[in-house]
Amino acid sequence: MKDKIMHGLKSIGIPRLTIITLLIVIYIAAYVLKLDVAQLFSDNLVRMGMNGVLVLAMVPGILAGTGLNFGLPLGVICGIIGGLISIELNLTGLFGFVVAIVASIPLSILTGYYYGKLLNRVKGSEMMVGTYVGFSVVSLMCIAWLVMPFKSDAIRWPIGEGLRTTIALTDYYDKVLNDFMKFRVAGIDVPTGLLLFFFFMCFIVFLFLKSKTGLAMIATGSNNKFAKASGINVDKSRMIATVVSTILGAIGILVYAQSYGFFQLYTAPLMMGFAAVAAILLGGASAHNAKIFHVIFGVFIFQGLLLAALPVANVIFPQGNLSEIMRVVVQYGIILYALTKAGGGQ
């Protein structure tokens, strides 16, 4: 029995255990400090739904063997462009949101296709190349944002050149999902629409993973020689995974933006991939294996930690930005841990 527990703990990994314990401690501390725990928990739910799809975007890449998709900013940019198109057309509410998604999908497919093609040529270095492709495209887009021909006043600076750095969604589709069928129970606000959408996306990905194509993808990631011997086109599987991941990245940022209330342009998407990677790793995924559960659990604890730590830390240590420091340490610490676990050593 003791062995079993030890084994269980070992498989979770010390870093994850530490983080989970930390989250529990923070929540207890919040209660002791008489902070509004219910409010904290509501916010935690919102943050989970808002970041969830971005984290979900990690699943196909990990399963297909292209590793942690640090190239997520590519999908994010496609999503933002879709969102801007919807605003440009002056569409509002749920309809505006849906159009944003629909507009972003062909873009993401195209981007994902070329990105996938690239990743197929750099097998073994996908993560490093992905990171810098992401960085390059974000910085190139910075120039593009300056010259893009959008006309809407909500998008452009009123004076001067280019698009705004933050674009408010108040008049368009701010919180369309969050407020959909929202209800309050035991002091907790439940963002029904947001959560429903997130779980719906999880379900779609779940179905995809159980399809012929999805299983071919899993076989590819699990053992590409096996996949080849089973008549699976390895490169095509990896390509599909990359495209799906990019699409999810695009949808993810739209969900994020409608909850946040703004689109952030220019350098904002630069580091977005890392937070998503950290969340799924915290949920229990590795560089080679991921489950839908890892997404849901991971995004809940990671976002919960970031959110709850801020007020608690502010009460206990009024000086210093402790919660931001913790975010950096936790986020990169868990990625580092996963990299060393993934091995490559002799």
């Binding site: 012929k212 299983l215 071919a216 899993i218 076989a219 699990s222 053992n223 020689k225 096996f226 011997a229 089973s230 008549g231 699976i232 294996n289």
Partner: peptide, 21 residues
């Protein structure tokens, strides 16, 4: 190296090739 998906269950290992082919 080639014959098995070591981290997948027996039933999927047996069925997957027939499924793809």
């Amino acid at each position: 190296g080639v014959g098995l998906l070591l981290d997948e269950p027996i039933d999927l290992n047996i069925a997957i090739t027939a499924m793809q082919v």
